[in-house]
């Protein structure tokens, strides 16, 4: 779980990449993701990954991305082994394994550089219903609160003699019940209070609420978009038509 949270949790940054329009960042990640699926040889994948590393360097998140790559690699080893056993083909098994790393990195690049606020903006761009967007916003907003809740409940139950780390697997799963029940009860109470506060601040008063901040694509956003699409087209074209699939 740790590699997952480390690889996908947003941390504030001030790099050029952080300041890009969130929609552009999403596009870049989607394009990188697609290219990863088009790759037909390891050396092509190496090219794609080096582009990702370059993007990570610009975004000043190189160390975090490197860590994610390293941690994903252990899972990749598993993919490699399974593939090798099934197909006996060393090259394609390696391709699958490394491709997995590339896929994780391309998605992680989007999430670690995009704030929840910007994510909300992206969801609005896709014209998702206000309720859906708001549900997402509150879910993410209350993650730290719930985590704190969980820790407090765990401490309270431990102080009453609950031994979380004792026993076999079944016993350990059963030990979670005294943690989960208060957590769920807390959340139900919390959601009631949230509903009251929402009503009191006119949630749903008008069908089209306005927004305090507006993300407007700046010239740099547009330039980056054009550049990204051009690079994508060029790469796709060269992978399929120019470069040999089986480079020595």
């Amino acid at each position: 779980m740790m590699w997952l949270s480390g690889g996908f949790v947003f941390r504030r940054g001030t790099s050029v990449y952080h300041r890009l329009d969130p929609r552009v960042k999403l596009l870049i990640s989607l394009l990188m993701f697609s290219v990863t699926l088009m790759v037909q040889a390891l050396y092509q994948l190496a090219m794609v990954i080096s582009v990702m590393v370059a993007v990570a360097a610009v975004a000043t998140v190189l160390r975090r991305v490197a860590r994610t790559m390293l941690l994903t690699a252990s899972f990749s080893g598993f993919i490699f082994a399974i593939n090798l056993l099934a197909t006996g083909n060393l090259a394609s098994s390696a391709l699958y394994a490394v491709r997995f790393v590339a896929i994780v990195v391309s998605t992680s690049l989007f999430f670690i550089t995009t704030s929840p606020d910007e994510l909300e903006q992206v969801m609005k761009t896709f014209r998702l219903p206000r309720d859906v967007v708001f549900a997402f916003v509150t879910a993410v907003r209350f993650i730290p609160v719930m985590m704190l809740d969980t820790l407090q409940i765990m401490d309270a139950q431990k102080s009453r003699g609950l031994e979380l780390e004792k026993g076999n697997l079944l016993k350990r799963v059963r030990n979670m019940v005294p943690i989960l029940i208060p957590l769920v009860v807390n959340s139900v109470i919390r959601s009631g209070e949230l509903a009251e506060a929402m009503e009191s601040r006119a949630y749903g008063a008008v069908p089209k609420p306005t927004s305090l901040v507006k993300y407007r694509a700046r010239p740099v956003d547009k330039a980056v978009t054009v550049l990204a699409i051009l690079l994508f087209a060029l790469t796709a074209y060269s992978f399929y038509f120019l470069l040999p699939a089986h480079f020595p």
């Binding site: 704030s115 929840p116 606020d117 909300e120 708001f134 916003v137 509150t138 993410v140 907003r141 609160v145 919390r190 209070e193 949230l194 009251e196 506060a197 929402m198 009191s200 601040r201």
Partner: peptide, 11 residues
């Protein structure tokens, strides 16, 4: 409301 935590919605 009594608990400020539950009336702050945004990031």
């Amino acid at each position: 409301f009594q608990n400020p935590e539950n009336q702050i919605f945004m990031f």
